Simulated scan of single mutants.
Amino acid sequence: MTLWEDYHEYDGPGWYRDLTSAIWYPAAAVVIAAAVAGALPGGRGRFLALPLAAWLGCAVTAGPLQYVQALGAPPATVALLASLAGGGIGAAAAAAGLRHAGTRLGLVSCVLAVTVGSVVDTWFKVPVLWDVIVPVVLVSVVATRATHRDGGAGSGVVAGMAGPLLLWCVYLRVVAPASVMR
């Protein structure tokens, strides 16, 4: 998904696209891996052990893979660090998600919606309202479900905002280095 052969030194939109993808896909992979593994029977420490194991798997596979893909581009280290940072962001989100069922649903649904929206936009070049309508609907459904299940608005807010906070963490990781590079 990350087109490192199109990578250039800082060029605005292309740079943001590549770096965001390099962080997003490892984060998404770790969240999904931890959620799937979290459905299996396990011990008390699984809320931390599973995301760390998923991050380690991401570090062993995605990091070196992105590094090799980026060897033709000048900053190949950026690819490796982005992959490791994305895996870390996903591990932190997954640890929170495994502790709270509503948060897990919010994270997984947001990861799937953003990833599918990105694939649709990249492959089909179709302008989609996916970026606006789908996230609002997902946040509303997840928050309503968690509030109804737990009987309190607090859990609904946390569950509904888990996915957008994951996106914000990826965005912050991309924007902070970009402001330094200017």
Rank of each mutant, 00 (worst) to 15 (best):
S140E: 11
A79G: 00
T77L: 15
R182V: 10
P41M: 08
G43T: 06
H148M: 14
F124D: 04
L48D: 05
R17K: 14
D121Q: 12
P64H: 13
W55V: 00
V132A: 14
G102A: 05
L48G: 07
Y67H: 08
P127V: 11
G152D: 11
A49S: 12
L50V: 09
Y25V: 00
G57F: 10
G156T: 07
A96H: 07
V128Y: 07
P13S: 13
G90C: 06
A70D: 03
S109A: 15
V78L: 13
P75N: 11
L172K: 03
P164R: 01
A39T: 10
T2N: 11
L98H: 00
S83L: 03
E9A: 14
L129T: 08
Y16T: 09
A153L: 13
E9W: 10
P51V: 02
G86I: 07
L71V: 07
Y10H: 15
V128M: 09
A76G: 03
L167A: 14
Y67K: 11
T122E: 09
L105G: 01
D131K: 13
S179C: 03
L98E: 01
G63I: 05
L167Y: 06
L80Q: 00
A62L: 15
P64I: 14
R182N: 08
A93G: 12
T147P: 03
I133F: 14
G57T: 04
E9D: 13
Y10G: 12
T147R: 09
A54P: 02
A73S: 14
F124L: 15
L107D: 01
A162R: 04
R17G: 08
C58E: 06
P41Q: 11
A37T: 03
G156N: 10
T115H: 10
A59I: 04
L65V: 14
L112A: 14
V60N: 07
L40M: 08
L3G: 10
A34W: 01
Y16Q: 08
G151H: 09
A39M: 12
V158T: 13
V141F: 09
I32R: 10
G12M: 05
S109Y: 03
A153D: 00
V175P: 02
A176K: 09
R104H: 03
T103S: 07
R182C: 07
T144E: 06
D150Y: 10
S118E: 10
G97N: 09
G14K: 02
Y171E: 04
A59V: 06
Y67I: 02
M181V: 06
G152E: 15
V78F: 09
L112R: 04
